[in-house]
């Protein structure tokens, strides 16, 4: 069975763990580098990106996650998680993990009173997928090899860059598991690819 970690420093950890279990995988709450061992993939949950970043630093987790991700571990970030994944965050000098070739802007829909939910059609995934946007960021622009999977109001809200997936909204706050299933498929594809590479040596 696939083991998927959820960064468990703060935020919507419980919701992601439940979704992982719902699609038949093993969920691991990641609080230290020790917890990163043997994971097939990692989810960076929603929460407060500034708070999660402080805690990543204090717990020396930033570099180990970056290293594993660069070696091929698939990572999925929702809302704050997307901000952590982004290669550039508008208004910030340096990115957090800087793994995904996208530029992200924080709080781009306004304050909490402007937070909303909507149904999205998502390329390769499906139609009428509920999406909850809470003080959400959006993807301003993407690099050449990034695939745009969903837009809303002419803004990019879900994109994939190789083995990295990031969205502005919170699929974990809904009962719909199609997006997490897509991530699990990504993990399986990547495991196959890396195994194929090993076979070729």
């Amino acid at each position: 069975m696939l083991k998927i970690g959820v960064l468990a420093l703060q935020g919507s950890v419980r919701e992601h763990i439940q979704q992982i279990q719902k699609v038949g995988c093993v969920a691991v709450a990641v609080k230290s580098t020790e917890d990163l061992k043997g994971l097939n993939g990692l989810i960076l949950p929603g929460g407060e990106s500034t708070a999660i970043r402080k805690l990543l630093d204090q717990n020396n987790l930033l570099e180990p996650i970056r290293t594993l991700a660069k070696e091929g571990m698939p990572v999925f970030g929702t809302c704050a998680g997307l901000i952590l994944l982004a290669g550039k965050v508008v208004g910030c000098e340096s990115p957090h993990l800087g793994l995904m070739d996208v530029v992200v802007e924080r709080n781009s829909y306004g304050r909490q009173v402007d937070s909303f939910e909507v149904e999205l059609s998502i390329k390769n995934i499906g139609r009428n997928i509920p999406a909850v946007f809470i003080r959400a960021p959006h993807i301003v622009s993407v690099g050449q090899n990034v695939e745009i999977l969903a837009t809303f109001d002419n803004r990019i809200v879900l994109a994939r860059d190789r083995h990295f997936l990031g969205c502005s909204f919170h699929p974990e706050l809904t009962e719909d598991v199609r997006i997490i299933k897509y991530f699990v498929d990504m993990i399986q594809q990547f495991n196959h690819t890396s195994l194929a590479k090993l076979d070729g040596i």
Binding site: G46, G47, E48
Partner: peptide, 11 residues
């Protein structure tokens, strides 16, 4: 949307 905002504050 309203409850979800609080969920993001957990921990």
């Amino acid at each position: 949307v309203k409850r979800g905002m609080a969920e993001m504050q957990k921990g």
